[in-house]
Design a protein around this nucleic acid. Structure first.
Length: 291
DNA sequence: CAACCGCCCTGGGTGC
DNA sequence: TGCACCCAGGGCGGTT
């Protein structure tokens, strides 16, 4: 389940190989690898030169010298891998991108087909041209233009539980189910607390926690790939970071020893420590943040 | 507009 | 061993 740190690692891995190359040919090997609403056929970017490898939240964008963008999302199991041309096709190979390299080619592989590669129209945003599909996506917490104050204000107005607000890519992008649970645990906030009942300081704390857990993951991912095999630790798609909450139900909380619980709401599962992350805030017991 | 819900899909796991 | 079921998840389109 790639989230921002994993997607950023993929971006960093792709960048040195793909920037400066020309997209020679894009072949859809297997259905499911492309969105039905792709703006134009892939041939529309063939011959274009890749200028930059960009990312917003979990969305990837090959910026090319043409009035179109090649965009991609890894979904749950998508991978971009630079492989030898002669390497046999993977079972779940969806899209093959030939960048004119004599030996290697870029492949998009996805088991569960929630990922996609598509051509997108460009649109103006603050004087810059970005893919249309990026316009709905809020800037992520590592973006230099990330407006922390605005995001806090926005969260304070939300009447839904804080967990789905964290997952809302139009509020702040890049956070998925795993790091949402990890950040809430770190900030000691119950996932079902209504966003508009959180104190400003709690939201500030939460945003710091989001950045902290993602930075830690990014640190891990940045060391373990080479340009031949851009990968996020095997097939599962997320780093082998030490998780404190996510999927830890039944395990003792590393802060207080209470069993981590798993609950389901909003079509998602959430994991939290019932003691460190009380639904109702007790007087001011002084729950320690972090470890 | 905000909030919410069901759906897309496949591999892995579980229970009988 | 086999089969039926269920679950995970991000994002999107539709509905309230």
């Amino acid at each position: 389940m790639p989230e921002l740190p994993e997607v950023e690692t993929v971006r960093r891995g792709l960048e040195p190989w793909v920037v400066g190359k020309k997209i020679k040919k894009i072949e859809v090997v297997h259905k499911g690898g492309n969105r039905s609403n792709t703006f134009a056929p892939f041939s529309a970017v063939e011959g274009a030169k890749v200028r930059n490898m960009r990312r917003r939240g979990k969305f990837l964008w090959f910026e090319v010298n043409r009035n179109l963008g090649l965009v991609a999302h890894l979904g749950m199991s998508g991978q971009f891998i630079i492989q030898e041309r002669k390497a046999p096709d993977e079972k779940h190979l969806r899209v093959r991108i030939d960048c004119g390299d004599r030996r290697r080619e870029l492949r998009f592989i996805d088991q569960r087909t929630f990922g996609w590669v598509a051509i997108d129209q460009l649109v103006q945003e603050e004087g810059l041209e970005i893919p249309t599909s990026f316009a709905r996506i809020a800037r992520d917490i590592f973006d230099s233009q990330f407006d922390r104050e605005k995001v806090i204000e926005r969260i304070m107005k939300k009447r839904s539980p804080i967990k789905p607000v964290l997952l809302d890519q139009s509020v702040m992008s890049g956070v998925g189910n795993i790091y949402a649970d990890e950040a809430l645990w770190l900030a000691a906030i119950h996932p079902e607390r209504l966003a508009n009942t959180l104190k400003r300081s709690e939201i500030e704390d939460l945003l710091s926690s989001v950045k902290e857990v993602m930075s830690a993951a990014l640190k891990q991912g940045g060391t373990s790939f080479d340009d031949l095999y851009i990968n996020v630790n095997g097939e599962s798609g997320y780093f082998d970071v030490e998780l404190e909450a996510y999927a830890q139900d039944g395990e003792p909380c590393s802060r207080c020893g209470t069993e981590i619980r798993r609950i389901a709401f909003g079509n998602r599962s959430s994991h939290f420590c019932p003691r460190c992350q009380p639904r109702r805030v007790a007087k001011k017991v002084g729950v320690k943040r972090g470890k």
